[in-house]
Structure formats: C-alpha cells, structure tokens
Design a protein around this nucleic acid. Structure first.
Lengths: 152, 152
DNA sequence: TATTGTTATACTCTATAACTATA
DNA sequence: TATAGTTATAGAGTATAACAATA
C-alpha cells in the first residue's frame, strides 16, 4: 500500500509527542489531577453522560479502577452518578458545574504558561503550530487501536 | 498579522495537548513504562550521564522518588549508577545499551500505530501536522529545567 | 553546616479476582 | 448465563521526614 505520509513523519511525530508530554507534565496545572482523572473529566465534558464501563474502556483502565476514579470525582464534587432509566445495572457518570469550572480554570492557567513559551518561538514556528492544532485534535480523536472502529 | 499569537491559540493548543496526551496514553507502547520512567530514559539518552538530583529536578519528582526510579531502571538493566570522580557524594546515572534499544523499539511500535491514525486524516491535516512537528519539538524544548523561574 | 543521596513510612492509584444485582 | 458495577487485596509509584556520607 502506498502512504502519502512517509514513516519518517510518524517517527518524528512520535518523538515530538514524547517531548510534548514531558512539557505538559512540567507545566504548573499538571499537578492537581492525575492524568487519567483529568482525561476522564474532559471526556465527560465533551460527550456528556457516559456509562462507567465506557469511560474505563476509553481511558484504558479497568472497570474497578474507573469505579474508584468516579468515586473520587464524586467525593470532590466534580462528577456524579446517575441511574440509567433503561437498564438498572448501568451507572451513568455526569460532570458537575464544579467539574466544568475546574477544567476551565486549569486550561486558563496552562494557556498562560504555554503562551509564554510560544512567545519565545520564531513567528514561522508559531504559525505552523497554530495551523496544525485543529488537525492534531482530529488526530487525537481518531480511534486508537480499534479495528472494529466503534469510536463514535 | 503583525501581532503575536493571541491567547486563543494558546488555549486551543492547551486543549490539543490534553487530547494528544490522552491519545499517547492509549497507544500500545504507553503501557510498559510509567510516564516518568520513559521521560527519564529519554533525558538520559539525549543528554548523557546526569546526576540523580538533576534528574529529579528535571522530571519534577522528589529525590527519593528518583532514587527508587533509578533503582528500578538498574534492576531492569536499562540504566546504571556511576560514581562522580570529582565528588564522592554524587551519583551519575547512565543509560545502558538495553535502555537505548528499548527506547528505539517503543518508538518504532508507536510510530506504526501513529502512522495508521495519520493515514485516516485528510491530506491537508497530514501536511499541517508534518509541517508543525519541528516547531512543536522546539516548543517542548523551550522549557528546559526552569533555570530562571521557580517550578510550581 | 550544607549537599547528595538513601532509608522509613504513608498515601494514591491501579490491576486481578471474587462478589452482587440486574438482564 | 452474561453483563454492569462494586468490593477485597496486592503491587507500583510517589511524597515527607529522618538519616548517612561527603564537602
């Protein structure tokens, strides 16, 4: 099969992502919530109420781990459990207003620090990054290792 | 125009980075090593022998945490401790050939999976991502060890 | 005394296995 | 019997505090 983008690009992007993860971990608002917790909150913000098992699968953790994570979120007032009217076995998880507010605050703080870093880059770099952000978001939203492809 | 990147760009990049971290966490080779472990190995690969306390500061963990991390790396044959000839208190950490090989292997596996995701994107998205990768790496490198500012 | 690193202890987060309740 | 979620228990990884060795 022929590829439009050569393997080298994926390899370089792989290295770039490694570095970006390191950067994000060093950035201030990366301390409050664990990575999985923050990621789960964002998923709830983005997609609305989700089944607990869906969250576990999406985040790549086990169901018991997600049970505890949701318990912590509920304890902290960031999310809450709701019953599913169609199936009494199911637990639906919903983000609260406090959860939404926390995400907004974290983004604002991080954006401020990112801004300072971006401003140190030459203008062409800044333009390329800005131009690529929507594409990177689409890349991140592409289904990971699901050949069945039931990523909504 | 003739102004710096507006705050909106940093905010969007912040969201994009969040998603990319989620993606990277779901990608297969993200399971073997913890984020800090992988990041420390990369640092050793990139910069050569480093003092244990330097690694701790750079990774944003405490000295005892880095002591244990290096102990795990040593136990797994991925790095080793060396004495500093100039200061007997200092421990220098060096990555081993096995450590280097592990990094190469992880990158290769991840690149393969990233390639599959990239191939699902429209061509303009692929081009923008490829064009931005070097800039993103420079962005990630723009925050070295926080020599001027205070961490957290 | 200050530093570099380790040890001791506790807490958070996660996984596997076993369990409850619905379907 | 299968599915959704929880509980029980163990292990990894981290932080704070106290310690040992060297400067």
């Amino acid at each position: 099969m022929s590829r439009t983008v050569p393997d080298l690009a994926a390899a370089e992007l792989s290295v770039g992502l490694e570095r970006l993860v390191s950067l994000l971990r060093r950035l201030p608002p990366g301390s409050d919530l664990s990575l999985t917790t923050a990621s789960t909150l964002r998923l709830l913000e983005q997609d609305g109420p989700r089944r607990l098992s869906d969250l576990a699968a999406r985040e790549g953790v086990t169901q018991p781990a997600m049970t505890q994570l949701v318990t912590r979120l509920e304890r902290d007032g960031l999310a809450r459990r709701m019953p599913d009217p169609d199936d009494a076995r199911v637990v639906l998880v919903v983000i609260t207003e406090a959860g939404l507010a926390l995400l907004r605050e974290r983004r604002a703080v991080r954006a401020t620090h990112l801004q300072a870093l971006i401003d140190t880059l030459p203008a062409p770099d800044r333009r390329r990054i800005v131009a690529a952000v929507p594409a990177l978001i689409r890349l991140a939203d592409a289904a990971p290792g699901d050949p069945s492809g039931e990523q909504r």
